[in-house]
Write a protein that binds this DNA or RNA. Structure first.
Length: 577
RNA sequence: GUCCCCGUAGCUCAGUAGGAUAGAGCGACCGCCUCCUAAGCGGUAGGCCACAGGUUCGACUCCUGUCGGGGACACCA
């Protein structure tokens, strides 16, 4: 349950009864967390936004609202502050109920049906199937994967998808590169010419092809071997990519560009746009700025993307009459829409940022406004070792593979570090720092809190031997006995989890989960340390089992939320540290 | 030349569907382990939220402009 939403609804019901506010709309009324905890658990701006309409001063209106708002169950006090804020304090059984819900619903606490089961397609990674995944793909993989998980939590019916760019010239280049490795497997000395892929990873592909097909392609001409070699190499590349994604716990539905082209989806989509009068033959202006040497004016089939927010119209057909990549992409998104996805999220690298406008334009056009495409762009990731930038050389083909990074720092750390930065901001990862057992390694800091909670339970089982400390037993604990500032702070934070999930999902800001967990871990650690100075604040009080159990209930609720957060992030927790 | 992103503490970054005294981590300084994990906690110092206008009860947040940093700008994918 999102308690901000719950209390907002309750307050709006009360506002509806107030004579001075008859006929008003309450859209601008917000119930939120006050900056300063001293101001209470919730703050409402109703008096300030409605004062003018009510013909009253904000503070006077606020005074008039105190009584009705205080009558709401769970709100123990309401007071007027500042320019007319209503500061509300929660109490009574509210916190106990929240803890009970968290214990009962465990990982599902915070889930909602805001999206009402709407179908959503999240497309991410979609790396060219011509080599191993590298570091830059990791960011898209994590962001896309976590977005998918978040969207499921708020009630979307999510499909995770990977678009295989297997229709362009680069897969023929792959085939030619693999073919040389195939000859190499027969003992021939080969040099990889400029323009082909030099990476070592193709050596095994050449050997595999030899093992499968023997010498049959050695004497064939290119037209003869190319399709077979291409299909084989493509299959190997995809297997490699899927394996790496599997290491990160990512599984997607794969859609092939070539298959869409073969099924004539492109003509279909282009015809649809033509019928809407959005296609025409024309000549584009030369690009401003760096003008390509070989630029020449030519007539092409163009899409009127500028009618839908793009800067210029975009070519659909190359001068030789074949489709552009954009045309295929239009077909792909047309296909997504036909498969029932009106809502789509794409995760792109920052180098494709300039492509976003035209793609969104095409979706808007094709679906007559019914489709909605959100694009998340992932900025660059730089890797440092001992303060030195780890260079990646594209020419030699020796770039840092995602697999290498995973082998060194693991999926947990990589995922978490990626989520500690907004996706559209550049990210630096320092090998040493990120592996440290300290706050530079945020996943450890949170896992530490979780491990501490587990240690308290181990201790509790000794101290209160034979007593049931399971979730259902804790759910009936005397939580109302918890009253220290640190305990209340943790409870308040736990209650913010549903709101965090919602905000992160609906605004496509998965990093919010990481920041929330850091805050929760900090609040828990503060609670823990309160017991250092004041012995009565320690969780386990041998002579007061009821109080101890109440505190254990809070701890279990906290660990539930940490696990829930880790689950959304795809991080696997460590029980003991 | 056009478009996109960014400019917040010494450093790395959160925060902005407008809200009260702008936050965290690191670094610096001062404290806290006979005590459930000190891989932790508390405190101090550190800010004209790039700048200038505008919108309004109220702007770090929205709008316009300026300056500064990064990126993208025909048939490639």
């Amino acid at each position: 349950m999102n308690h901000f939403r719950h209390f907002r609804e309750q307050i709006l019901q009360q506002l509806d009864q107030v004579e001075a506010l008859k006929g008003q709309t309450f859209d601008r009324v917000v119930v939120e967390l006050p900056r300063d905890p001293k101001h209470g658990d919730l703050a409402c701006n109703a008096a300030m936004v409605l004062a003018k309409a009510a013909g009253m001063k904000p503070r006077d209106l606020a005074e008039a609202l105190v009584a009705p708002i205080q009558s709401i169950e769970g709100i123990t006090s309401a007071e007027v502050a500042g320019p007319g804020f209503l500061n509300l304090r929660l109490g009574g059984d509210f916190w106990a109920q929240q803890i009970q819900r968290i214990l009962e619903q465990a990982k599902d606490f915070g889930d909602s049906q805001i999206a009402g089961g709407e179908k959503l397609n999240v497309e991410y990674v979609s790396a060219n199937p011509t080599g191993p995944l590298h570091l830059a793909h990791a960011r898209g993989a994590v962001i896309g994967d976590v977005m998918a998980r978040l969207c499921e939590k708020v009630g979307y019916d999510v499909t995770r998808e990977y678009y295989i760019n297997d229709a362009g010239g680069q897969v023929d280049t792959l085939a030619r590169s693999a073919y040389l490795r195939y000859r190499e497997a027969f003992g021939e000395a080969v040099t990889i010419p400029e323009g082909l892929y030099p990476g070592d990873y193709l050596v095994a592909v050449g050997q595999g092809l030899k093992a499968r097909d023997g010498a049959k392609w050695l004497t064939a001409d290119e037209a003869g071997w190319l399709p077979a070699v291409r299909d084989y190499a493509l299959g190997e590349m995809l297997a490699m990519i899927k394996e790496t994604l599997g290491q990160m716990g990512i599984k997607q539905h794969f859609t092939s560009e070539a298959a869409l082209v073969a099924a004539d989806k492109v003509s279909e989509a282009v015809a649809a746009l033509s019928d809407m009068g959005l296609m025409y033959r024309g000549v584009l202006e030369p690009p401003k700025g760096q003008k390509p040497e070989d630029w020449e004016a030519r007539e092409q089939l163009l899409f009127k993307s500028s009618d839908f927010g793009d800067d210029v119209d975009r070519p659909i057909q190359k001068s030789d009459g074949s489709w552009t990549y954009f045309a295929n992409d239009i077909a792909y998104h047309y296909d997504k829409y036909q498969r029932g996805f009106a809502k789509m999220i794409n995760v792109f690298g920052v180098d494709h940022a300039g492509y976003v406008k035209r793609l969104r334009a095409s979706v808007k056009a094709m679906t007559q406004g019914a489709g909605d495409l959100t694009v998340l762009t992932c900025n660059l990731v730089k890797l440092y070792r001992d303060g030195e930038l780890v260079k990646m050389s594209k020419r030699s083909g020796n770039f840092i593979t995602l697999r290498d990074v995973l082998d060194e720092i693991g999926s947990n750390v990589l995922r978490f570090v990626i989520l500690t930065r907004r996706s559209d901001m550049p990210l630096d990862i320092d090998y040493a720092k990120v592996l440290e057992a300290s706050k530079d390694n945020p996943v450890w800091a949170i896992n530490y809190a979780y491990a501490r909670i587990n240690s308290v339970f181990r201790k509790a089982e000794e101290m209160f031997e034979g007593r049931d400390l399971g979730a259902s037993a804790l759910a009936s604990a005397a939580v109302q006995r918890l009253s220290s500032a640190e305990e209340l702070a943790v409870m308040n934070l736990l209650s913010q989890w549903p709101q965090t999930v919602e905000t992160a999902a609906l605004n496509a800001e998965p990093h919010r989960v990481a920041f929330y967990l850091q805050e929760l871990a900090a609040a828990f650690n503060a609670l823990w340390s309160a017991g250092h100075g004041d012995v009565t604040l320690r969780f386990l009080q041998e002579d007061d089992a009821e109080l101890s159990v109440a505190r254990l209930a809070l701890l279990r609720a906290t660990s539930n939320i940490i696990l829930s957060g880790f689950d959304v992030m795809g991080v696997v927790p460590q029980e003991v540290m």
